[in-house]
Amino acid sequence: MSDGESRPRPQYGEYATPEEQRARIQRPEVTEALEAGVAPPAEPAPAADSAPRVRGPLADRIATFVLLAYGLVSIVSTIVQLQDFPGYAERAAQILGVDATYTALSAGYVWGAAASVIYGVGYVLTAWLTWRRLRRGRIAFWIPLVGFVATTLLAGVCVTIALTADPAFLSALTGVVAN
């Protein structure tokens, strides 16, 4: 009696190739065909649109969409206000209780427009990165928060440059802050 005859017939596919094992696990009709001694049916090609979509936690998706919606409303209103930078600066001074007139009009319009572009591009970039992360089923609520901070810091630099272009206005503002 040789080793092949004394050994019991495999029952669990230990001699199956990895491809055969995967086929049997994923498609029961392959198992039936192999047990019947028939060539297994060809594996159907997956459709391009049938790629599985992974979804992250519902609470994360809700929080992410709420943050993006709030950000959109905030960005649009800020961009509209920055288009009239002298008015924007004077409203900021009024909030601080200062009666000052912004007079560096050309610098205000240029830097206000630059801040508007930064806000717009920052929002679009944030929304795109958020969408990519959500499509992968990963936690994404933090991306709008980081995008807000980064965009606000960059746009704040532009607003600060515009405010420092008018020394009298800046002096009136710093006088209030010093007191």
Results as ranks from 00 to 15, higher is better:
residue 151 T to W: 10
residue 118 I to S: 05
residue 70 Y to I: 14
residue 23 A to L: 13
residue 124 V to P: 06
residue 61 R to P: 01
residue 111 W to A: 00
residue 44 P to V: 03
residue 155 A to K: 12
residue 4 G to L: 13
residue 56 G to T: 01
residue 24 R to I: 06
residue 34 L to T: 00
residue 126 T to R: 01
residue 90 E to S: 09
residue 31 T to D: 02
residue 127 A to H: 07
residue 84 D to P: 12
residue 99 D to F: 12
residue 172 A to Q: 02
residue 152 T to I: 08
residue 36 A to C: 08
residue 1 M to A: 12
residue 19 E to S: 09
residue 25 I to R: 13
residue 58 L to C: 07
residue 20 E to N: 03
residue 178 A to G: 04
residue 60 D to Y: 01
residue 115 A to T: 07
residue 89 A to F: 14
residue 109 Y to T: 15
residue 136 R to A: 00
residue 111 W to V: 00
residue 93 A to P: 14
residue 44 P to M: 03
residue 130 T to D: 00
residue 174 T to Q: 12
residue 118 I to H: 08
residue 24 R to L: 08
residue 69 A to Y: 14
residue 111 W to I: 05
residue 143 I to W: 02
residue 145 L to V: 12
residue 50 S to M: 04
residue 176 V to K: 14
residue 67 L to I: 01
residue 120 G to F: 14
residue 30 V to W: 11
residue 46 P to K: 00
residue 84 D to H: 14
residue 179 N to M: 14
residue 93 A to V: 11
residue 57 P to R: 08
residue 80 V to Y: 15
residue 29 E to L: 05
residue 147 G to Y: 01
residue 63 A to F: 10
residue 95 I to F: 15
residue 175 G to D: 09
residue 77 S to P: 00
residue 21 Q to E: 11
residue 77 S to Q: 04
residue 170 L to I: 07
residue 172 A to T: 03
residue 155 A to V: 08
residue 90 E to L: 05
residue 95 I to C: 13
residue 40 P to I: 03
residue 47 A to W: 15
residue 176 V to E: 13
residue 163 L to T: 12
residue 59 A to F: 06
residue 4 G to S: 14
residue 74 S to C: 07
residue 37 G to W: 01
residue 97 G to C: 11
residue 12 Y to E: 12
residue 167 P to F: 09
residue 116 S to V: 08
residue 115 A to Q: 09
residue 72 L to R: 08
residue 166 D to S: 00
residue 170 L to P: 09
residue 178 A to R: 13
residue 115 A to Y: 15
residue 45 A to V: 15
residue 115 A to E: 07
residue 13 G to S: 03
residue 43 E to Q: 11
residue 72 L to V: 08
residue 152 T to R: 14
residue 37 G to D: 05
residue 173 L to K: 02
residue 117 V to F: 13
residue 23 A to Q: 09
residue 89 A to K: 11
residue 68 L to C: 00
residue 10 P to W: 15
residue 106 S to Y: 15
residue 85 F to D: 10
residue 23 A to M: 12
residue 165 A to S: 13
residue 89 A to T: 09
residue 161 I to N: 07
residue 117 V to N: 13
residue 9 R to G: 02
residue 108 G to E: 11
